[in-house]
Simulated assay, not measured.
Amino acid sequence: MLVTRLRLAKLYRPYREQAGSVLVVGHIPVQEVAAFTSVRVLFLAQNATAPAGVTAERTVHVSPVVLQKLSGLKSVGGLQAVAEVEAPGSHDFLAESERGALKRLLALDCVQDPGNLGTLLRTASGLGWDGAFLLPGCCDPCNEKALRASRGAAFKLPLASGDWQELDKIAEHHRMAYLGAEPHDNPGSATTSPTRSEGMKGVCLVLGNESQGLSEEAHERCQPLSIPMAGRMESLNVSHAGAILMFALSDAGLDVVRDARQFVV
């Protein structure tokens, strides 16, 4: 019964959210995630040892057949660990101690590729952003591929999901200006009605769907922001573009710009 429950927790997002558990597959992913959340059950291959630094409420050595059922993989060659961990909770960005406490928030608008989503969360965490907000249509941040790409950031970075109305309340509460990433010289940018940024204390960077770009709701709210492109390329992958923009908008990026000015003739 436990194997069946954990397999369902991996395969079906609604059940996973109800159970409050996430299944993490692989020695390194388990080690990365365990640094930020509790491990409820650690399943190890026979004769395998727990990943360094990982402690679990319960540890069980199982056969390759059981590991395969838990992981959902066709082959478990080299697989040594699978863990049931406590799912990351939804962060309440309105509960910050004071208005304007949130300075940089990443909002993902129907980003569906788990590799892109995980990479963006990892980048936001690495660059010191305050959190991420997942709008409708985004893939599950606890998807196995997303977890691998995020390197545990889905558990470390404050994370919430909801609709535009909820995000609007957060942006208003913390006086954040909306910036929406758009391809350079996108004709649609001229038709937007960007949110005024005067008096704002923070920024909410909105990144859109891999193929469709920003949604209509995003266009209604965001001031367009683009990366100048040299050559014949029209745009970058959303995770690459997001990394550049997050760095440019971070304290580290602003410091680099200030330092670089002394080299400009």
Rank of each mutant, 00 (worst) to 15 (best):
A56V: 00
E57A: 13
E57F: 10
E57G: 13
R58M: 07
R58D: 10
R58L: 11
R58Y: 08
R58N: 11
T59Q: 12
T59V: 11
T59A: 08
V60W: 09
V60T: 11
H61I: 00
H61C: 03
H61L: 01
H61F: 06
V62H: 08
S63T: 13
S63H: 08
P64K: 01
V65Y: 09
V66S: 04
V66A: 06
L67D: 08
L67E: 08
K69Q: 15
K69W: 14
L70Q: 10
S71A: 02
S71F: 00
S71V: 03
G72D: 00
L73W: 02
L73I: 01
L73V: 03
L73K: 01
L73N: 00
K74P: 06
S75N: 14
S75T: 14
S75Y: 12
V76W: 04
V76Y: 06
G77I: 14
G77T: 13
L79T: 07
Q80D: 03
Q80V: 00
Q80I: 02
A81F: 00
A81V: 01
V82W: 01
V82N: 09
V82D: 06
A83P: 04
A83V: 01
A83Y: 05
E84D: 04
E84K: 00
E84N: 04
V85P: 04
E86S: 14
E86F: 07
E86R: 14
P88F: 10
G89N: 05
S90T: 15
S90I: 12
S90M: 15
S90K: 15
H91V: 06
H91T: 06
D92W: 00
D92P: 03
D92R: 04
F93T: 02
F93S: 02
F93M: 00
A95H: 06
A95C: 07
E96Y: 12
E98L: 03
R99D: 13
R99A: 08
R99M: 06
A101D: 14
A101F: 13
L102D: 10
K103E: 12
K103M: 07
K103N: 03
K103C: 06
R104H: 09
R104W: 05
L106Q: 02
L106V: 00
D109F: 14
D109P: 11
D109T: 14
C110N: 15
Q112C: 15
Q112K: 15
